[in-house]
Amino acid sequence: MNPQSIFGDLLQTQYQIWLLKGFLVTLEVTVLVIPAASFLGFLTAIARNSRWRALAWGTASLVSLLRNSPLLVQLFFWYFGASAVLPDGVRDWLNDTHVAVLFGVPIEWPSYEFVCGVFGLVLYSAAYVSEEIRAGMRGVPKSQRYAAQALGLRPVQVFRYVILPQAFRISLPTLMGQYMNIVKNSSLTMAIGVMEISYASRQVESVTFKTFQAFGMATLFYIMIIAVIEVLAQFLQRHFPVAGARR
């Protein structure tokens, strides 16, 4: 078979711009979801360790539900289901265009699909992040807590200055793995119409029939983002080594 028919020539500039725009949307989703999911995941981890049984049990079952059903179905649920439940006023507001001005730069309110996609992805990822953080907290030796209490620290101080810094270092590698998953999972938002890179590549493919170039560029973009996170992970792990590693 003639390889020319698979590889062919490069994409025209116009289509490269489509892909680039998709890449930017993927970046936007990632940059929004990572901090939000981290924060929510952190709160969830604390809630699961709570002394109030109902709170601990409730969050545990929510986390289990989110982790054991597909992200795609969850996105459909939020996208189609939530709009049926939301009050009309809220739904109209979300569907309308709004422009905020920040430091003289007009910022447009994102599309309803985008809001739903980010929301669904934040919840799904937070469930995973909370498990990593919990594992990190469990990894801190009990003696650390006792020692801190013996020094007269209050419970909040024990948590803030003794448990948390060590738990953070322990969970760092798996946490970075979850951030990579967020990038990869953002591809599913195309199913509800978020025009991120997978959506764009599919669109370019169906217009130009240049399958190899369209998917090739999208794949390269993903590998680029993952590689950047990997480098960042290595850097962070060197700067925050696990304290008192077994000698």
């Binding site: 028919s5 698979i6 590549s201 998917f215 794949t219 590998i223 993952i226």
Partner: peptide, 23 residues
């Protein structure tokens, strides 16, 4: 490589390229 790309992307590759490549 396989762990760095989304499952969705690999499905695209196989779904659209396998028929093209092998006819």
């Amino acid at each position: 490589f396989f762990r760095a790309i989304p499952v969705l992307m690999l499905i695209f590759w196989t779904y659209f390229l396998l028929p093209l490549a092998f006819g």
